[in-house]
Amino acid sequence: MTYKLILNGKTLKGETTTEAVDAATAEKVFKQYANDNGVDGEWTYDDATKTFTVTE
């Protein structure tokens, strides 16, 4: 399945996607991606759209 991440960081905004077997796996990938890019904030997940959002 394809999962999407929306980044609403103070210095980085954008979107990315990943292929993962489940939401938990996608979340690990996205949290590492956000961490690597210096984005740390509040996370939400919408199962209907398979979209994670992180907002600083």
Results as ranks from 00 to 15, higher is better:
residue 37 N to R: 15
residue 42 E to V: 15
residue 37 N to D: 03
residue 9 G to H: 08
residue 52 F to P: 00
residue 46 D to R: 03
residue 10 K to G: 07
residue 34 A to P: 00
residue 56 E to Y: 12
residue 31 K to C: 05
residue 27 E to N: 05
residue 19 E to K: 13
residue 48 A to R: 10
residue 29 V to K: 08
residue 15 E to A: 09
residue 2 T to F: 09
residue 16 T to M: 14
residue 19 E to P: 05
residue 49 T to F: 05
residue 24 A to F: 12
residue 13 K to F: 10
residue 30 F to R: 00
residue 42 E to R: 09
residue 24 A to N: 08
residue 29 V to I: 13
residue 36 D to M: 13
residue 23 A to C: 11
residue 17 T to Q: 11
residue 10 K to I: 14
residue 13 K to H: 11
residue 31 K to P: 00
residue 15 E to W: 15
residue 34 A to V: 08
residue 39 V to M: 08
residue 29 V to D: 04
residue 16 T to Y: 15
residue 2 T to C: 12
residue 53 T to Q: 06
residue 12 L to N: 08
residue 21 V to A: 14
residue 49 T to A: 07
residue 8 N to Y: 12
residue 24 A to L: 12
residue 26 A to L: 01
residue 9 G to E: 02
residue 9 G to D: 03
residue 52 F to M: 02
residue 14 G to F: 12
residue 2 T to A: 07
residue 7 L to W: 11
residue 3 Y to D: 00
residue 17 T to S: 11
residue 16 T to K: 11
residue 13 K to P: 05
residue 54 V to L: 09
residue 40 D to W: 15
residue 21 V to T: 13
residue 47 D to V: 12
residue 54 V to N: 02
residue 12 L to R: 07
residue 14 G to I: 15
residue 38 G to H: 09
residue 10 K to Q: 11
residue 23 A to L: 10
residue 40 D to S: 15
residue 15 E to D: 06
residue 6 I to E: 04
residue 14 G to Y: 13
residue 20 A to H: 03
residue 28 K to D: 06
residue 5 L to Y: 02
residue 48 A to W: 07
residue 35 N to F: 15
residue 14 G to R: 13
residue 51 T to Q: 04
residue 41 G to R: 01
residue 1 M to L: 13
residue 2 T to K: 11
residue 8 N to Q: 09
residue 15 E to S: 15
residue 55 T to Q: 07
residue 9 G to P: 03
residue 40 D to N: 13
residue 30 F to M: 03
residue 45 Y to M: 02
residue 53 T to I: 08
residue 18 T to R: 05
residue 53 T to A: 05
residue 22 D to R: 03
residue 33 Y to G: 01
residue 25 T to G: 08
residue 2 T to H: 08
residue 7 L to I: 14
residue 36 D to W: 08
residue 5 L to W: 02
residue 13 K to I: 09
residue 17 T to K: 08
residue 53 T to G: 03
residue 55 T to G: 05
residue 39 V to R: 02
residue 26 A to K: 00
residue 5 L to Q: 00
residue 55 T to D: 07
residue 37 N to W: 14
residue 40 D to F: 15
residue 53 T to P: 00
residue 30 F to I: 01
residue 20 A to L: 03
residue 14 G to W: 15
residue 7 L to D: 01
residue 15 E to F: 14
residue 30 F to H: 01
residue 31 K to Y: 06
residue 27 E to S: 07
residue 11 T to S: 13
residue 1 M to W: 14
residue 32 Q to L: 09
residue 23 A to F: 13
residue 31 K to I: 07
residue 47 D to R: 08
residue 36 D to L: 13
residue 5 L to K: 00
residue 35 N to C: 10
residue 1 M to D: 14
residue 20 A to Q: 07
residue 28 K to E: 11
residue 3 Y to R: 01
residue 25 T to P: 02
residue 34 A to E: 01
residue 6 I to A: 04
residue 2 T to M: 13
residue 12 L to T: 09
residue 35 N to P: 02
residue 38 G to R: 07
residue 34 A to N: 02
residue 43 W to G: 00
residue 52 F to V: 01
residue 28 K to M: 11
residue 56 E to H: 06
residue 9 G to R: 04
residue 55 T to N: 09
residue 38 G to K: 07
residue 50 K to H: 13
residue 40 D to R: 13
residue 44 T to V: 11
residue 51 T to S: 05
residue 31 K to V: 06
residue 22 D to I: 03
residue 12 L to Y: 15
residue 5 L to D: 00
residue 44 T to W: 08
residue 11 T to Q: 09
residue 56 E to R: 04
residue 20 A to I: 02
residue 14 G to A: 14
residue 43 W to M: 05
residue 28 K to R: 13
residue 26 A to E: 00
residue 20 A to P: 01
residue 5 L to R: 00
residue 2 T to P: 06
residue 43 W to T: 01
residue 6 I to Y: 07
residue 27 E to P: 00
residue 25 T to K: 07
residue 51 T to C: 05
residue 52 F to H: 02
residue 36 D to N: 11
residue 49 T to S: 09
residue 5 L to G: 01
residue 19 E to R: 11
residue 45 Y to V: 02
residue 4 K to A: 05
residue 26 A to H: 00
residue 50 K to Q: 10
residue 55 T to C: 06
residue 37 N to E: 08
residue 30 F to W: 02
residue 42 E to F: 12
residue 38 G to Y: 06
residue 56 E to F: 10
residue 41 G to P: 01
residue 4 K to N: 06
residue 4 K to E: 03
residue 48 A to H: 10
residue 23 A to Y: 14
residue 46 D to N: 11
residue 20 A to R: 03
residue 19 E to T: 14
residue 38 G to Q: 08
residue 33 Y to R: 03
residue 43 W to I: 03
residue 53 T to L: 06
residue 29 V to N: 06
residue 55 T to F: 09
residue 29 V to A: 10
residue 33 Y to S: 02
residue 8 N to R: 12
residue 10 K to D: 06
residue 33 Y to I: 07
residue 30 F to T: 00
residue 40 D to H: 15
residue 14 G to S: 12
residue 21 V to K: 12
residue 34 A to G: 03
residue 30 F to D: 00
residue 30 F to Q: 00
residue 51 T to W: 02
residue 27 E to I: 09
residue 52 F to C: 01
residue 40 D to Y: 14
residue 12 L to F: 15
residue 12 L to D: 05
residue 50 K to P: 00
residue 10 K to S: 11
residue 52 F to I: 01
residue 18 T to C: 13
residue 52 F to E: 00
residue 47 D to S: 13
residue 16 T to E: 06
residue 19 E to C: 12
residue 7 L to T: 05
residue 56 E to Q: 10
residue 1 M to F: 14
residue 36 D to S: 11
residue 11 T to V: 12
residue 11 T to Y: 13
residue 21 V to I: 14
residue 39 V to N: 03
residue 15 E to K: 07
residue 9 G to S: 11
residue 35 N to S: 15
residue 25 T to D: 09
residue 7 L to F: 11
residue 21 V to H: 13
residue 50 K to V: 03
residue 27 E to F: 15
residue 50 K to W: 06
residue 25 T to F: 08
residue 22 D to M: 04
residue 36 D to T: 08
residue 9 G to N: 04
residue 38 G to W: 05
residue 30 F to V: 02
residue 1 M to G: 11
residue 54 V to K: 01
residue 17 T to E: 09
residue 49 T to L: 07
residue 35 N to E: 12
residue 29 V to M: 09
residue 5 L to E: 00
residue 23 A to K: 15
residue 45 Y to Q: 01
residue 27 E to A: 12
residue 47 D to H: 09
residue 16 T to Q: 11
residue 29 V to S: 06
residue 30 F to N: 00
residue 47 D to A: 14
residue 8 N to T: 08
residue 38 G to N: 10
residue 42 E to T: 13
residue 55 T to Y: 08
residue 33 Y to F: 11
residue 44 T to H: 13
residue 12 L to W: 14
residue 45 Y to D: 00
residue 33 Y to K: 03
residue 18 T to Y: 11
residue 19 E to L: 13
residue 37 N to Y: 15
residue 45 Y to S: 01
residue 7 L to H: 03
residue 18 T to L: 12
residue 36 D to F: 08
residue 11 T to W: 14
residue 11 T to F: 14
residue 33 Y to V: 05
residue 19 E to N: 11
residue 34 A to F: 03
residue 34 A to K: 01
residue 35 N to A: 15
residue 50 K to S: 06
residue 32 Q to N: 08
residue 10 K to L: 14
residue 25 T to V: 08
residue 32 Q to A: 14
residue 1 M to R: 10
residue 15 E to P: 04
residue 42 E to H: 13
residue 3 Y to V: 01
residue 5 L to C: 08
residue 43 W to R: 00
residue 4 K to T: 15
residue 33 Y to W: 14
residue 42 E to A: 11
residue 28 K to F: 10
residue 35 N to V: 14
residue 21 V to M: 13
residue 49 T to W: 04
residue 31 K to H: 08
residue 51 T to P: 00
residue 25 T to Y: 08
residue 11 T to A: 11
residue 37 N to K: 14
residue 46 D to E: 07
residue 45 Y to E: 01
residue 51 T to I: 06
residue 32 Q to H: 07
residue 7 L to C: 07
residue 32 Q to K: 15
residue 11 T to K: 13
residue 26 A to D: 00
residue 41 G to D: 02
residue 42 E to D: 12
residue 36 D to E: 13
residue 55 T to E: 06
residue 30 F to Y: 02
residue 41 G to E: 01
residue 11 T to H: 15
residue 1 M to E: 13
residue 8 N to F: 12
residue 22 D to W: 03
residue 41 G to L: 03
residue 6 I to P: 00
residue 30 F to E: 00
residue 16 T to V: 15
residue 56 E to G: 05
residue 20 A to E: 04
residue 22 D to L: 04
residue 16 T to H: 15
residue 15 E to I: 13
residue 41 G to H: 02
residue 12 L to K: 11
residue 20 A to W: 02
residue 47 D to C: 07
residue 22 D to Y: 04
residue 3 Y to P: 00
residue 55 T to V: 09
residue 14 G to T: 14
residue 48 A to C: 07
residue 19 E to W: 15
residue 27 E to V: 06
residue 2 T to Q: 10
residue 52 F to Y: 06
residue 43 W to H: 01
residue 13 K to Y: 10
residue 26 A to P: 01
residue 12 L to P: 03
residue 28 K to V: 10
residue 25 T to R: 06
residue 34 A to I: 06
